[in-house]
Amino acid sequence: MRILVTGSADGLGRAAADALLSAGHNVVVHARNEDRAAVLDSLADRGADLVVGDFSDREAVRRIAAELNVRDPLDAVIHNAGVWSGQAVMPVNIIAPYLLTALLHGPQRHVYVSSGSHFAGRPSLAGVDWQGRTAGSYSDSKLFVTTLAAALARLHPELLSNAVDPGWVPTKMGGPGAPDDLDLGHQTQEWLATSDQAKALTGGGYWYHRKRQQPHSAVNDHAFQDQLLQALAEETGTPL
Rank of each mutant, 00 (worst) to 15 (best):
A38W: 02
P107G: 09
R63P: 02
Y98H: 10
L40M: 13
A17T: 03
H186N: 10
L228N: 14
P239V: 15
H79K: 02
R212F: 05
G106K: 10
E67W: 10
L201M: 15
A23M: 00
L155W: 07
P123G: 11
D18H: 12
S137L: 04
G53K: 15
K211L: 13
R2D: 14
F119M: 09
N80S: 01
A17Q: 04
W168Q: 00
G204N: 10
S124H: 03
D165S: 10
R14Y: 12
G177I: 15
A178P: 05
T238H: 13
L68V: 08
L125S: 15
S56P: 04
L99T: 09
Q227K: 02
A31H: 06
Y112A: 00
L184V: 05
G237N: 13
D75V: 05
E34M: 08
M90Y: 13
G53P: 14
D181L: 12
G203C: 12
A76S: 03
V128N: 07
G86E: 02
R2F: 15
P97C: 05
S8M: 08
V29I: 15
P176I: 11
E190F: 02
L12E: 00
D140P: 07
Q189I: 02
L43N: 03
V27G: 13
Q227L: 00
D165W: 07
G53R: 15
G11F: 07
T238G: 14
T188C: 01
S42Q: 09
A96T: 09
E59I: 07
S195D: 02
G106N: 11
D72S: 03
T6D: 06
E158L: 05
F224S: 01
V145D: 00
A135D: 09
F55A: 03
F224L: 04
P157R: 03
A31T: 08
Y208A: 04
N33L: 08
A151H: 01
D54V: 12
P73L: 12
A102W: 13
R63A: 13
L40G: 06
A151D: 00
L100I: 06
Q108K: 15
T188W: 00
